[in-house]
């Protein structure tokens, strides 16, 4: 992770990595056996040599390929550098680290077997070599089959461990989309974080209403929405009067940001980011207004706003 922050390392390590793929580290095995003897140490060193680069470069790649959007989003929410490292960098890197577990265990096994071929007192590799010296093909087959079973068992163990430790990836992934990224960039441009007590992900009817209610209750709230338009196919664009009759508190704002009244979807960003920090407690408590936001995808895009008795019919498509 430190290597990730160093620009020279980012420049040179990938090239080293690709070169490392081609140079055969396993060819060092005879030298290692010469240096460490035919005991177990030489097998462990051979295995280590094969594994260490694989894991190191995989982790480095993982740290290098973290989505900047995640980091910016965390920074936007006021996270410290340590919190970013703990909650964004490490979990993102772990996916890469664990992805290298399975090949690493296979490579470790290959390293040990090659070491045992070259010189060993005991081991499955030694069994194979002994059988070969005696021309006992069945002995070799037994050793090879046992070796296959050992490899499969080790891989299965690693898969289970990986699935257990990375179970959060499958269920808890929150996609940070274009709108959030844009908001993040806008917020970060000034060099300051947008701070909020509550962050709502998703600006659908529920998210917007919750944001509105929290805002009216005096809670600092930010609603993050990835879509840059109000396409009605998936968004509740009209609040039905019967919904408003629910409890008397859930009512749309009388004052809708001016930018929403002008044409052009891109100007509607103010709905999300432009009025951040405004005191929403001053919003009207009782209104008969209905706000509708026709689809912005059909060319003449505009957000129509109505208040105080006026009623706009959504433009028919």
């Amino acid at each position: 992770m430190i290597a990730r922050t160093l620009r020279p390392a980012q420049r040179h390590l990938p090239a080293l990595h690709h070169r490392g793929e081609f140079d055969s580290r396993i060819a060092l095995a005879p030298i290692i056996v010469l240096a460490f003897g035919i005991g177990d140490t030489s097998k462990i060193v051979t295995s280590w040599i094969v594994v260490v680069f694989l894991v190191f470069f995989n982790t480095f790649e993982g740290a290098r390929s973290i989505d900047e959007g995640f980091i910016n989003a965390a920074r936007l929410l006021g996270a410290s550098e340590w919190q970013i490292t703990r909650t964004v960098v490490i979990p993102s890197t772990m996916a890469w680290v664990f992805a290298s577990l399975s090949p690493a265990i296979s490579f470790a096994l290959i390293g040990v077997i090659v070491g045992e071929f070259i010189g060993a007192e005991r081991g499955i590799g030694r069994l194979i070599i002994e059988s070969e010296a005696r021309a006992e093909a069945s002995g070799m087959m037994v050793a090879v089959i046992v070796l296959m079973l050992v490899g499969v068992a080790l891989s299965a163990m690693i898969w289970r461990l990986q699935a257990h430790l990375l179970r959060w990836q499958q269920h808890n992934m929150v996609e940070i989309g274009s709108m959030e990224s844009r908001l993040t960039v806008l917020a970060m441009r000034g060099g300051e974080a947008m701070k909020a007590r509550c962050c709502i992900v998703g600006g659908g009817p529920a998210g917007m209403m919750l944001g509105y209610l929290l805002g009216r209750a005096g809670v600092d709230v930010v609603v993050l929405e990835k879509h840059a338009d109000f396409f009605r196919d998936f968004r509740g664009d009209t609040v039905h009067p019967s919904t408003l009759a629910g409890d008397g508190r859930a009512r749309p704002a009388r004052r809708i940001p001016a930018s929403c009244r002008t044409s052009g979807c891109s100007r509607c960003d103010g709905m999300f980011g432009g009025d951040a920090g405004a005191d929403r407690r001053s919003l009207a408590g009782s209104t008969s207004a209905t706000a509708s936001s026709p689809s912005c995808r059909s060319g003449t895009s505009s957000i129509s706003c109505a208040s105080s008795g006026k009623r706009y019919s959504p433009r028919s498509r």
Binding site: D40, K43, I44, V45, T46, S47, W48, I49, V50, V51, V52, L54, V55, A104, I105, A108, L109, G111, V112, I113, G115, E116, R122, G123, I124, G125, R126, L127, A143, V146, L147, V150, L154
Partner: peptide
């Protein structure tokens, strides 16, 4: 033989990861 190979694989793997 299997135990020795497994032991060496495990230590090579663990030490490689730790380093």
């Amino acid at each position: 033989a299997t135990a020795v190979t497994l032991k060496n694989t495990f230590f090579g793997f663990v030490i490689g990861r730790v380093v």
